[in-house]
Each structure stands twice: as C-alpha cells, then as structure tokens.
Amino acid sequence: MRPSPARLLNILVPVKRAVDYAVKIRVNAQQTGVDLNVKHSMNPFDEIAVEEAVRLRERFKDEIKTIKAITIGPSKSAETLRTALAMGADSAIHVEIPENAPAPEPLGVAKTLRAIIEKQKDSGGIDIVILGKQSIDDDLGQTGQMLAGLMGWSQATYASKVDLDIPKREATVVREIDGGSEEIRCKLPLVVTTDLRLNEPRYASLPNIMKAKKKPFEKLKPEDLGVDLTPQMETVKVTEPLKRVGGVKVANVDELVAKLKEAGFTAVKN
C-alpha cells in the first residue's frame, strides 16, 4: 500500500520595516517619538524568520508548499516585502496604512494576522507562522504570543533551532531561556518567534532580486480584513536618556580628596 502523501505545509512570515539598527536614534523635537527620516530596513529578527522559512523549504523541498510574507505599514514597507521575496518567499501581502498613521500595536497586528490566516483557509490554510521575537523599534515583543493566543495554537518563542516532523505534524524547537536552552515539542499549527542564534540570513542574490519583481504581490487595507488598528496606548513623552558626564583628571591626592568632599563624600569614622 502506498503511504498517503503528507499534507503540504504553508508558512506565513510577518515582517516589519523598522529603523535600521546601525542608525543612531534621535528623539524628535516634539518629543513624540524618534526621527523617522533615516535609513530603514527589515527588522533583523524578521530577517531571521524569513531565512528560517527558506531554509525549511530547502530542507523539506516540496513538502513546504508556500512561503508567504506579510507586512503592515505605509507604502514604503513594500520594499521590505521585496527583500523577503528576494530571499526566497513565494508571495507577499501588503496591508497598507496611510503614511502618517500611528504605528500599529501588537494586538492590532496579531488580529490582522489572524484575519489573514482565516482568509487563507480556502487556499490550504497556514500551518506555521514564523516571526521575529520583537521588532527593534518598539521592543514590545508580544505579537507572536498574542497571535498564538488568539488562534489557540501552539507557540514556541525565542527559537534558536527549529525542526519539523511533517508526517506527524509536529515541530521540535530549541528555545533560548535564562541561563541555557529548552527543547520543546509542539503540535502544528504553530507560532514560532525567532531569536538571534537561529540562523544567519543570506544575501539576496541579483537573479533572485530580479525574480522577486515578478512574484505575486497582494495589496490590502485594514478595512478589507475588518480590523481596527487604532492604538490603545497613548505616547505621553519620549526623551533621551541622561548624558553621561565625563570624569576629570586630578593632579594629586589632595585635589582628589577635595573633589570627593565637594561631591559629598566623607571619611569613614573609626
């Protein structure tokens, strides 16, 4: 008897366009946020997520049916999706919001992702969502967990190694935890959030960049998905940390003692 073919997997990789990590962050004059008129690129943890999806495809070949990248953001976020496509994702979904709209919060993002996953049900559904453990701009680190909660799926956060048993529809994930690592086994469908050691993302090669331009690219509005991205938090004020004041050189012990006294230090009394 021929074994029944395992059901093929579909992977969804949410990515975010964020201020590049190499950029020196400056608080804007209104103290409402940081200066966004700087170089942006794909959130590094999301880049790791895309790489992992592509590596799973390389490992499991045709058993991974599709890799879809998705982003929520203004029109410029499209280039982040192009990068994901150039790295090896098959198709992209851009949930476009206006240029000056506030950045969506984790719950809004998770609900949008849920709506997308629901929408994919007709075309084979989504079995694994791989996304960064956090984005380096707001550092909230909640989206993956919220999505797993909303969907009632397994979650494997802070992953440093992912292995799949597709016939059994199981994943074994090594997680980064305090002081070591933890290996867990979970049932699909699954949400994986990536940590730094999971992999090293590849360069996008020129032929793949060219191919990426021809891959399916779907544009949606939050309204199309019936989600509301209005923030629930209000940013009161953003300020820079206090500047460190440099030390001074003293010429001799007397001067040192005088400086210490000036600063309010007193000798220990016996």
Partner: peptide, 16 residues
C-alpha cells in the same frame, strides 16, 4: 557577470 549580491541594509553594505 555570473551573478551578484545587492546589499539590502547597512549591515550588509558594511559586510560586502
């Protein structure tokens, strides 16, 4: 050329 690599972000720019 055979192929090539285009930097996608400042980190790759420095790496190249």
């Amino acid at each position: 050329i055979n192929t090539g690599v285009l930097a996608q972000n400042p980190a790759q720019f420095s790496s190249l």
